[in-house]
C-alpha cells in the first residue's frame, strides 16, 4: 500500500495574524519501493511536506494516508509513523547515547522489540551503512568524524526497517567522495530492504542518478511532477528558480539553442556524450 496525500494544505499559526500557508493543495502518491526526488528552493515547503509524511505535523485540511492509516488520527498516526523513517539534515540533531550501538538501538527499543531482534537489526544496519561493528559499536557517537556520524544517524533509522525512508538533504556539507558513498548506501537500502525512498536535495545531479519520480515544489505548490526526463527538460526554468538542475540537462539545452539537434530527455553526462557521439557519427555518414 502506498502513501497517499490528498488535497493537503498546511498553514502555520492558522487563524493568527502571522498565519502563513506553507503547503497548498498537494496531491501526491508514493508507491511501494519507489524512489522519489523532492526539489525546491529554501522556503518552498519541502521540509513541511516531509514532516507531514510521518505525522510530525498534521494537515490543516486534506489528508495524508500512510498504508491506510490516517495521519490526522492520533491512534492511527503511531502505526503510520512506525512505517516512515525520517533522516534529518544534520546527524547532530539525533545522536545522543553513550555508544554507537546504544544510539542505533534507540529506535528499535522504542518499537519494543526483543533484545535478540534489536541486536540483529543493529548489526545489519551497521553493515548496510558500512560501519565496522567491532570498531565502532562501543565508540561514543560524539567522537566520530562528520561522515561517520552521518552513517550512525542513518543506521539508527535503518534499524527500524522503515517501509518508507525519508531523507532531508542527506548529502549536505559532504565532500564528493562522501556524497557518492551516501548515494550508494541509499541504493543499498532499497535493494536489500525494499524500502521506498523520498529524498530532498538541492543537487539534482544527485537525484537524477536514481529517482524514478521527481517532484518540484514552488511556493507551497507542486510546480511540476514527473519522470526525471520530463522534469529535467525544464532545466533552464529550474535554474532561473534558484535550483540546480543536472549539469548535462542545462548543457544539452544550451547546445540545442546553439543549433545542435539533440534528442530530449538527456540529463546525465554519459547520455549527453553518447548523444554527441551519435550526432557526430550521423553527420559523418550523411
Amino acid at each position: 500500500m502506498p502513501i497517499v496525500i490528498e488535497k493537503l494544505t498546511y498553514t502555520y499559526q492558522s487563524g493568527s495574524v502571522n498565519a502563513f500557508t506553507a503547503l497548498k493543495d498537494i496531491d501526491l502518491t508514493i508507491k511501494d519501493g519507489e524512489f522519489v526526488g523532492l526539489i525546491g528552493h529554501t522556503g518552498s515547503g519541502k521540509s513541511t511536506l516531509i514532516q507531514q509524511l510521518n505525522g510530525l505535523m498534521q494537515p490543516t485540511s486534506g489528508r495524508v494516508i500512510v498504508d491506510g492509516y490516517d495521519m490526522s488520527d492520533k491512534k492511527q498516526r503511531a502505526k503510520g509513523r512506525s512505517l516512515v523513517g525520517m533522516v534529518f539534515q544534520y546527524p547532530d540533531y539525533q545522536l545522543f547515547d553513550e555508544t554507537v550501538y546504544k544510539d542505533i538501538s534507540f529506535g528499535p527499543r522504542n518499537m519494543k522489540l526483543d533484545n535478540d531482534e534489536i541486536d540483529r537489526r543493529v548489526r545489519e544496519a551497521m553493515r548496510l551503512v558500512g560501519l565496522d561493528f567491532d570498531e565502532f559499536a562501543e565508540k561514543s557517537p560524539f567522537e566520530l568524524s562528520g561522515g561517520e556520524k552521518r552513517r550512525t544517524a542513518l543506521a539508527g533509522i535503518i534499524a527500524m526497517y522503515p517501509k518508507y525512508l525519508v531523507l532531508d538533504e542527506p548529502m549536505a556539507g559532504l565532500d564528493p567522495a562522501g556524497r557518492r558513498a551516501v548515494l550508494e548506501m541509499i541504493d543499498g537500502f532499497r535493494s536489500q530492504l525494499g524500502c521506498a525512498v523520498v529524498m530532498v536535495s538541492h543537487s539534482m545531479d544527485d537525484i537524477a542518478r536514481s529517482a524514478e519520480k521527481v517532484v518540484v515544489l514552488r511556493d507551497g505548490r507542486i510546480f511540476t511532477c514527473g519522470t526525471p526526463q520530463e522534469i529535467f527538460s525544464l532545466a533552464d526554468e529550474l535554474y532561473e528558480m534558484g535550483l540546480e538542475p543536472p549539469f548535462a540537462a542545462r548543457m544539452a539545452s544550451d547546445l540545442r539553442r546553439r543549433g545542435l539537434l539533440l534528442p530530449h530527455g538527456i540529463y546525465t553526462n554519459e547520455a549527453l556524450a553518447a548523444a554527441l557521439a551519435e550526432y557526430k557519427g550521423g553527420r559523418g555518414n550523411a
Binding site: 514532516q51 510521518n54 510530525l56 534529518f88 539525533q94 545522543f96 534507540f106 522504542n110
Partner: peptide, 29 residues
C-alpha cells in the same frame, strides 16, 4: 524533538521520572 519523535521517542506517557528520562535524547544533543 522532531528527529527523536521520528525514532519513536515517547515524551508523553509515564510518571514524572520516566518523562524526565525521556527528555534526555533531546537535551543531550
Amino acid at each position: 524533538m522532531k528527529a527523536q519523535l521520528a525514532r519513536g521517542a515517547d515524551l508523553e506517557s509515564g510518571n514524572i521520572f520516566k518523562r524526565a528520562k525521556a527528555m534526555l535524547p533531546i537535551l543531550i544533543p
